[in-house]
Structure formats: structure tokens, C-alpha cells
């Protein structure tokens, strides 16, 4: 009885969460330029539109360039910091760590406005490089947290054994630390990548009028009339996120990454 109740409750919540996505998936299949559900004259033509129409393709390319490079930069900033905080106990290390966590805890519009004034002063406002750097800083929290989790999971005795056997610091890093944290590096990158792909406010404030990303393009289209391509982007993004997080779960320990204890 209680199991039935539990499954019913969880099923209802998942249904509520899936409902808008299902309707959007249906809408994306409309034959004409209208948003109807159930779709009329179902056809996949709007999926082709996303990958052939120049303006949508351009936004897709911008989004992908920004997401791949900003996630890499975020990783490059987060890894040495996470390693340093794990290796040494210093006040400034902890302070910097807190600074790396901050962008994600504050309402995003605050950081976005900070970037806006900064890039205006620096003269880079409207450049794609500014968007990439801003996203890297904005999402540095994600690799920072995942890598720190990975480092914390390393058994200190393994390190001590390596030193006893004569390994110096660089060798320990290369042969022990790096292989053990590699899955966490990858998931940190993946988290930053997916969130950068979906990010709106920072990209908009930094270069919204010159570098149009997919979320910006969707919002602009919302104002001037709906088209099923917007639904197509939503479907593609949901599937992409599910695929990436599914891969992380397949090759890593997702519950532990999200804060459960390690498996006994």
C-alpha cells in the first residue's frame, strides 16, 4: 500500500515535470508555422530548418563555440585552484574557493550586470571573447565542486605510499592524482558545457545584440512571433542534456557526484 502510494506520488511529480516538454515536443512537429497541440499535418521540416536556416544555424554555432571554449576555460581555472586547496591549507586558498562558488549562489542578474559594466569599460562589450570569458567565470563553480569531490575521494595513504617509494611531487600528480580525478574533470566540463549552452542573461548583457546564442535567439523570436523551430531547439536541448548526464551516470557515480555517500 505505502509502496503504491509512493510510486503514485513520484509518477505524478515526474508527469508534471514532463508535461511541458511533451507538449513542446508535439508542437515541434507541426507542418505549418503554427503552434498547435496535437500537431497538424505532422512533419519534421522544422528540425531541418534549425540545421539549414542561416540565422538559426548561426545562433547554434555561436552557442557551441561559447559552450565548448568557456567550459574548457572554466576547467583550466578550477583545476589548479581545487588542487591547491586540497593540497595546502591556507586562508587565501579558502577565500579564493569561496569566490569561485559565489557566482552560482547569487541571483545571476547581479553577475551579469557586473560583466556588462566591466566589458564596457574594458572596451570588449559585444565581442564573443567577452562572452566566453564571462561564462567561464560564471560557471567555474561546477568544475570546482566536482573536482574537489574527486580529490577528497583520494585515499591519502595512496599518496604516502607513492612518496615512500620515491616519487616526487610532479610524479605523484601525474601518476596518481590525475588518473584518479579524470572522471571528475570530465563531468565538471560536461556540467559547465550544458549550462553554458542554456545560459541567457550573461550572454545577453555581455554581447546580446552582436553575438546571438540560441537562448537569445529564442527569446527574440518570442517577441516577434512564435515558430516551431523554438520547440525544436527545446527538444534538442533536453535530449542533449539527457544524453550527456546519462553518459556521466554510465561512466561515473552520479549519486556520489550529487552528494550521496560513496558506495560501501
Amino acid at each position: 500500500m505505502s509502496r503504491l502510494l509512493r510510486n503514485l506520488f513520484m509518477g505524478l511529480v515526474v508527469l508534471f515535470m514532463a508535461l511541458p516538454l511533451l507538449v513542446v515536443a508535439g508542437v515541434s512537429l507541426n507542418g505549418g508555422q503554427q503552434l498547435r497541440f496535437p500537431p497538424r499535418d505532422p512533419s519534421p521540416r522544422w528540425y531541418a530548418e534549425l540545421f539549414t536556416a542561416e540565422d538559426w544555424l548561426n545562433a547554434l554555432a555561436n552557442s557551441l563555440i561559447i559552450a565548448t571554449s568557456s567550459a574548457a576555460l572554466a576547467l583550466a581555472v578550477a583545476f589548479p585552484l581545487a588542487w591547491f586547496v586540497w593540497r595546502y591549507r591556507t586562508g587565501y586558498g579558502r577565500l579564493l574557493y569561496g569566490l569561485g562558488i559565489a557566482p552560482f549562489t547569487l541571483p545571476p542578474v547581479i553577475t551579469a550586470l557586473g560583466f556588462l559594466v566591466f566589458w564596457t569599460v574594458a572596451g570588449w562589450h559585444g565581442s564573443i571573447l567577452a562572452t566566453i570569458v564571462s561564462h567561464a567565470i560564471f560557471f567555474v563553480t561546477l568544475p570546482l565542486v566536482t573536482i574537489s569531490l574527486g580529490l577528497a575521494a583520494i585515499d591519502r595513504q595512496v599518496i604516502e605510499v607513492a612518496i615512500t617509494m620515491g616519487a616526487d611531487e610532479p610524479t605523484v600528480f601525474r601518476t596518481v592524482v590525475l588518473p584518479l580525478v579524470r572522471p571528475y574533470l570530465i563531468s565538471g566540463y560536461a556540467f559547465a558545457f550544458v549550462l553554458s549552452l542554456n545560459e541567457y542573461i550573461v550572454a545577453y548583457m555581455v554581447a546580446g545584440f552582436t553575438v546571438e546564442t540560441l537562448p537569445i535567439k529564442i527569446f527574440n523570436s518570442l517577441r516577434y512571433g512564435y515558430t516551431p523551430v523554438m520547440a525544436v531547439v527545446a527538444v534538442v536541448f533536453v535530449l542533449l542534456a539527457a544524453l550527456i548526464f546519462g553518459l556521466i551516470a554510465r561512466f561515473g557515480d552520479l549519486p556520489r557526484l550529487l552528494g550521496a555517500w560513496s558506495k560501501e
Binding site: L21, V24, N198, F219, L222, A234, F237, A242
Partner: peptide, 21 residues
């Protein structure tokens, strides 16, 4: 967890669009 993460990563634009639809 994968489902929750996928919804979490969704852009506010997409969520707004989905609900308005």
C-alpha cells in the same frame, strides 16, 4: 537524477516558452 539534471539545465527561455505553450 538524469531527468532532474536535464530539466535543471534547461534555459529559463525554454521553460518560459514551454509553459506559455
Amino acid at each position: 537524477l538524469v531527468f532532474v539534471l536535464a530539466v535543471l539545465s534547461l534555459s529559463e527561455v525554454i521553460i518560459g516558452f514551454a509553459w506559455s505553450t
